[in-house]
């Protein structure tokens, strides 16, 4: 019944779900950004910051999607490790998101 090639710890699946949780958290922040822009009065600068937040959210989703499709490969030695470029891109998306948030708060 058991397939011997399968990783019993389901590491790739767990990592995929971790990416999903992280995109979910990012979505919550993007929604809060939109709410903030609308609630404080949608001036041009606020709409711009909000649009930037949406773009960054999409950027993060792209990184996550790319990584998830890499994790889905069924190689014997497991999926390739996360590349520093993607890790940096994901972290910088979040840093820029915080910058937009600061612009929206002020």
């Amino acid at each position: 019944m058991t397939t011997p090639d399968r990783d019993p710890g389901l590491q790739p699946e767990r990592t995929r779900l971790a990416w999903r949780r992280t995109t979910l958290a990012g979505t919550v922040v993007a929604v809060l950004a939109a709410r903030s822009a609308l609630h404080n009065g949608p001036t041009a600068a606020r709409v711009l910051a909000c649009a930037l937040c949406a773009a960054l959210w999409l950027g993060f989703l792209t990184v996550a999607h790319h990584r998830i499709s890499t994790l889905a490969t069924t190689e014997r030695n497991g999926p390739a490790a996360l590349s520093p470029k993607h890790a940096t891109a994901a972290a910088l998306c979040i840093v820029a998101l915080a910058g937009c948030a600061a612009a929206l708060v002020l």
């Binding site: 590491q11 767990r14 971790a18 992280t22 958290a25 919550v28 809060l32 497991g78 490790a81 890790a87």
Partner: peptide, 30 residues
């Protein structure tokens, strides 16, 4: 590869912490 994936999940957990802090910033403001 399992060690690398575990490291990646830890990284993602920290990113979620960062996102939660940013969400907290929005929450305080609104």
């Amino acid at each position: 590869y399992r060690f690398s994936l575990a490291n990646e999940r830890t990284f993602l957990a920290w990113l979620r912490t960062a996102l939660a802090l940013i969400g907290g910033g929005f929450a305080v403001d609104q």
